[in-house]
Amino acid sequence: MNIFRLAGDMTHLLSIIVLLLKIYATKSCSGVSRKTQELYAIVFLARYLDLFTDFISVYNSFMKVVFIASSLAIVWCMRVHPMVRRSYDKELDTFRHYFLIAACFLLALVLHEKFTFQEVFWAFSIYLEAVAILPQLVLLQRSGNVDNLTGQYVFFLGAYRGFYILNWIYRYLTEPRFTRWIACVSGVVQTALYADFFYYYFISWKNNSKLKLPA
């Protein structure tokens, strides 16, 4: 564990806490893409199939449980909680995420480290995570106005990706046999998707104004 990975995990956790807090405090999920949240729940469930077969560390297992539970809690809130559910704007959240799931699964069947059940699902989760933010970014683009907490949620998610890239560079330099091409290439693609958002986030931060994305 290096400082970059820890910082990445912490900003990832922070992003989820910010989102849960926003939904809990305002009893509203306006501006939040349910499709992105469902994709993340699938990502964690598919990736952490090794929770009961490979023990890495208490930290590792604990975080896996936290990520699975929190992503399911968010989806549950958006689908079942009577007040939160009413604030969900279906008309804005129109991204066809089933295509992403199908495409990522096909890619995982072709590109994986080993052709085993766990490894194919692991690769699938990596590919799906890389594109899972797309429905959220499209929703923000469509609604134009981004409230502070939703902006911070996406900001922390992007920061998490940035730290993971630093972590891979660090590991590549310090661990002689560290090569994890599937995760690294997908990770770079994922981080690149945030570039546009970050640009506008920093401009609004610099000008001390509300975050607005161009139509």
Binding site: R5, D9, H12, D50, T53, D54, F55, I56, S57, N60, M63, K64, F67, W122, Y164, N167, E175, P176, R177, F178, A183
Partner: peptide, 10 residues
């Protein structure tokens, strides 16, 4: 370290 079984990253 990298020979450890399983994926150590989240």
């Amino acid at each position: 370290l990298s020979a450890k079984k399983g994926k150590d990253e989240l």
